[in-house]
Amino acid sequence: MRFSDYCSLTLVIGLFILAALLPLIPDSDYLMSLALPIAMYTVLATSWALFSGPTHYISLATGAFYGVGAYVVGTGIEFIPYPVLLLIAGFSGIVLAGLVGIATLRLSGVYFVIFTLGLAELIRQLVTWIQNNFTGSRGLYVLTDITENYIYWQLIALTALVFLVGWLIKRSRLGFALRIIGNDELVAGHCGINSAGCKVILFMVSGCFAAVVGAVMAPRFTYIEPSMAFSPELSFQVVIMALLGGVHRLWGPLVGVIPFTLLWEVIASSFPTQTVLLLGVSFLLIVYFIPDGVVGRLEDLVKSMRLARPGSNRG
């Protein structure tokens, strides 16, 4: 590592420590009510971009993994220790992503999108059916002594983990393989790369994180119901935020998550009945006007400024 790498590493660690200290500020309830969703969406959007960025496969299934994670905790909280439940949730996410991946990722992206589009709804139907026929009750109570602050710290730790995993992948053979696949899948095959396998592994990583986030958030709900845990809006918001920030950099989604969560806070409180419409409209605005995300825009800007300056050294 070079000196500048150490600098940015120190900076990142410093930021994480600052973020982790946030709950210790007295009377920070309002601040926490913003920081918690920001942390949650950062993990979700970053792990989403980890898969969808390099492969260009759009996953609309974040809500499904999240719901599965929440349900694992909801079902097991009375019999199994909480940390074990987190592991089980992550494992369920991996298995689900693996199954979906094996069925669809050999084929073109369209099949994958379609499959993930209805996945949350499918699992919701299955869970509802199981509850109606075998357990008798529609919802689940998650009663724990896990506080809001504790949830927040877990999310911060997950954020650190997702960044670490993303960084490691980028430096690994897998990351290199993905860049080649993103360029030309046929060439990738001729280089001996197993494209479908790479995609499945990455989707499993992404699904694992989403499921664990769901599990971490479950105690906050206290009462879990299928229509709540498997909401399609969650998948949608994650896609919006990641695209808003930009998916080609590890920290890109973060740039989208912060403003969007804040904006959303305002919208949801001022126009509570029209959230879905506004969500759709803001999404369209992003797709049409900033397709490469804010980070992509900024990088273009920087590039053109450098080109404009004569004698500048590039390359």
Binding site: V239, T275, L277, G280, F283, L284
Partner: peptide, 29 residues
């Protein structure tokens, strides 16, 4: 705008996905 068929596919999927939410919102309203 699309440079390739794949690009168009991704863009239209995203755009129509956004539209679906906008339409649901309008109908809810």
């Amino acid at each position: 705008r699309a440079k390739s068929q794949g690009q168009l596919e991704v863009d239209t999927i995203l755009a129509t996905f956004g539209m679906s939410f906008a339409l649901v919102g309008i109908m809810l309203m």
